[in-house]
């Protein structure tokens, strides 16, 4: 459903991605592995339309989306959660969720969608009127994902969702992402440092090094690959 072909991105003069190609099949979870600065995060930003792309193409459900504005990309069905969560801190949880549905309007569908999202994150339903900066780290991450879901995406981009979470909580969250992806039929592209957990729930994985894909395979094969294991999976 999402195909990146030979994507080039640079910050000022310094190239950040040179020729990244990868694929996210419909309904699957795909993880990007790599060290800090390898271009995982940049790839996510590029797909979300947050960065200008110098060359290459991004195909989403048969449509070229490279160069489109983030607003259009969200409307086409791709939502992103970023590192640092990017919530509207001074607004309430409910307002954050309402903003998540900005592209959907607030008609009948809104209440329905809100209810569905809250079934995945019941903790949020008790805190709807709370300012979101008062939430715990885990709850904030739930809100970030919940807000993205409000836009009814078919592809979810996630940049470091486990950052700052306790290991147990991270594990729980990845389990949540997996069940959510299955139940809603949402494809996921994950960039993750805590790679073992992420690869565990993924169908496919790509290894990035200095702005290039050096290896792409099924999650199973990656888990079996000695080199990948010692370099990125920490055991």
């Amino acid at each position: 459903m999402l195909t990146l072909k030979d994507i080039h991105v640079s910050y000022g003069q310094a190239p950040a991605l040179h020729g990244v190609s990868l694929e996210v099949p419909e309904g699957h979870i795909v993880t990007l592995l790599g060290a800090n600065g390898s271009g995982k995060s940049t790839t996510i930003h590029a797909v979300a339309g947050l960065l200008p792309i110098q060359a290459g193409s991004i195909d989403f459900e048969g449509r070229e989306i490279a160069g489109l504005s983030t607003e259009t990309i969200v409307r086409l069905g791709i939502c992103a959660t970023l590192e640092g969560r990017q919530l509207f801190g001074e607004m309430t949880v409910l307002e954050n969720l309402r903003l998540g549905a900005y592209t959907q309007g607030e008609g009948k569908g809104f209440d329905e969608q809100l209810e569905r999202v809250l079934t995945y994150f019941p903790a949020l339903s008790e805190r709807l009127e709370l300012s979101s900066y008062l939430l715990s780290g885990g709850e904030q991450q739930m809100l970030a994902i919940g807000r993205a879901l409000m836009a009814r995406p078919r592809l979810l981009l996630m940049d470091e969702p486990s950052l700052g979470l306790a290991p147990l909580l991270a594990q729980e969250m990845f389990a949540g992402i997996m069940s959510l992806s299955k139940a809603e039929g949402i494809s996921v592209l994950l960039a993750e440092q805590a790679a073992d957990l992420a690869v565990g729930i993924s169908g496919y994985g790509y290894v990035l090094e200095v702005g290039k894909v050096v290896l792409g395979d099924t999650a199973r094969n990656l888990l079996d690959n000695e080199e990948v294991r010692s370099a990125y999976l920490g055991h």
Binding site: A48, L50, T70, E71, V74, R75, C79, A80, T81, L82, Q86, L87, F88, L99, G100, Y102, T103, R147, A148, A151
Partner: peptide
């Protein structure tokens, strides 16, 4: 940034 993310 968050506003762009939600499609505003």
């Amino acid at each position: 940034l968050a506003s762009r993310l939600v499609g505003i």
